[in-house]
Each structure stands twice: as C-alpha cells, then as structure tokens.
C-alpha cells in the first residue's frame, strides 16, 4: 500500500485565556473530502505534533457540522469561516488555523462569543407574544416580505462578520461596536407584523453608543457571511429607519411609539 498522505495544519494555540498564543504544527493523515473538523478529530485521537512530541489535544468548538449552528467559527488560511464547511481539498496547504481573536480566546480555538448573545438582548432580538390570556392570531405577513425576511433569519450568530469588520475591536477609542449581525437582526424582527409593534424599541437600541453609528461601511461583513445574508442592505435599511426614528423623536410623532 502507498504511504499515508498527510496534510499539515499550523494551529495557533493558547493554553488559557490569559496566556500568550503560540503556533504548533501537526501532520494529519489525509482522507478524501475531509473537513477541518475531521482533521482536528485526528489530532484529538493522536495528539502528536510534527516534531513527534505528545501534546495536549487541540480544543475547539463545534456542534451541528452542517453550517447552521455557528459554533465552529475560526480563521482558516487568514479568512474567518466555519470549520465544518472548510474542506481540506479546497484549501491551500499548509493550512493555518487561528481562533477568531476579535473575541476573547478561552483555549486554543475556543472563543467566547457571549458579547453577541448579550447584544441580542440589547437589541431585543425576539418577538414578544406572551400574555396572561390567549391573544389570538397575530396579523398576517405578506409573502414577499416573508421571503426576504427569511434570508435574514439564517443568521447563526457565528461571529464571522464581527471578525472581518475593521470596526469591531477592543481598541481604546472604540465604543464597543456591536457588529454587523446585530445591525441586521432588528430588521428581521421589525419586518414581522407582530414584532413591528416593538419596532421603535429596537431602533432606539441601535441608536445607543456602539450601535449603528459604529458602522464604517467597509462591507467586509456581506462578503464573508457564510449564510450569504445581505448584511449591508440591512445596515442601510436600519440607517434609514433609525434616522426617521430620530426625526420622529425630536419633532414628535404619533407614530414614534
């Protein structure tokens, strides 16, 4: 039998949230159609680096393995993306794998995306329907609207757009910009006929410091989004909506809510 073909992974590792990162090279037995996760599983099975030393296995996050959960985001060959959808056959080797360090690194490739989940609460990314009694069916949604709103609903808070955005960072002057995904989601919930009843609350949240005004239109987000969500269209739509809301607030309007 021919010699086992290998793929080289150069992984940026970090032992703890506070320790400094370092690179480690692994040679992984190649299989046809393998993805990055499959490679990481090989390291888990046999945690030996390219120098032949036994090391602690590389830690990573993943769940659904079909690009819908958003857990396995990492920077592969310089581009932030989902590791489950990154096929080794389609990548240049050696493959470099880094954590998305826009987020706090927990260990190796595991990052803490909780800033996104906190921001979901901030922008009220839900539709309040509960009451103490049956409120009956809500208003219907036009089919055409449902179609584009569905595209926005594909967001899996994977954080890839935040990683690619030059304005999402922890620089001293940065007002903690919430990031592209969180500017798009209010549009989804505001498009829903029941959700629209709380429209102004979401828009007001976008107008807070670190909200929509943090966007600098680099439009990287729409290029890197694994789900192909029209993020920049959403941002422009929310720009328009927040401006109108600001005018309503200032001049007064019965529709300002």
């Amino acid at each position: 039998m021919a010699e086992q073909k290998t793929v080289t992974f150069i992984i940026t590792r970090q032992d703890s949230p506070d320790s400094s990162p370092y690179k480690e090279t692994f040679k992984i037995p190649y299989r046809k159609n393998m993805n990055i996760i499959a490679g990481l599983m090989e390291i888990q099975k046999n945690p030996v680096n390219a120098e032949g030393e036994k090391v602690s296995p590389v830690q990573w996050d993943s769940n659904c393995l079909e690009e819908v959960c958003g857990a396995c985001s990492m920077v592969i060959n310089g581009q932030a993306r989902q590791a489950c959808a990154a096929l080794v056959d389609e990548l240049e080797t050696p493959i470099t794998i880094e954590p998305m360090n826009t987020f706090p690194v927990v260990r190796d490739l595991i990052i803490d995306r909780s800033r996104m989940f906190d921001a979901l609460k901030r922008i009220k990314a839900w539709i309040p329907i509960d009451g103490t009694h049956d409120l009956g069916p809500g208003p219907r949604m036009p089919e055409k609207k449902r179609q584009w709103a569905y595209e926005l609903s594909k967001c899996m808070t994977c954080g890839v757009c935040l990683e690619a955005c030059p304005n999402v960072n922890n620089k001293k002057f940065n007002n903690n910009f919430i990031g592209p995904a969180l500017l798009s989601l209010p549009r989804l919930y505001n498009a829903h006929p029941t959700g629209a009843m709380n429209k102004s609350e979401r828009l007001e949240a976008l107008m807070q410091d670190g909200g929509i005004s943090g966007c600098g239109n680099s439009q990287n987000c729409v290029q890197v989004c694994p789900k192909g969500i029209p993020l920049t269209t959403s941002i422009a739509a929310m720009n328009r909506a927040t401006n109108i809301q600001a005018f309503k607030n200032f001049f007064g309007s019965d529709n300002a809510h």
């Binding site: 310089g78 581009q79 690619a164 030059p166 304005n167 960072n169 620089k171 001293k172 002057f173 940065n174 007002n175 910009f177 943090g214 600098g216 239109n217 680099s218 439009q219 990287n220 290029q223 890197v224």
Partner: peptide, 21 residues
C-alpha cells in the same frame, strides 16, 4: 473615527474595505 478602526485590508482585500482604509 480613524483611531477606532483596526484596518484589515491585507486579510480582507475587498474593494469597499480598501476604500474604507
């Protein structure tokens, strides 16, 4: 505003990102 950005045109060399820079 200049100070708030962490430019990444080398990693993401899309037209709009270059214009942003």
């Amino acid at each position: 505003i200049v100070l708030t950005a962490r430019n990444n045109t080398r990693k993401y060399s899309f037209g709009r990102n270059i214009l942003f820079f």
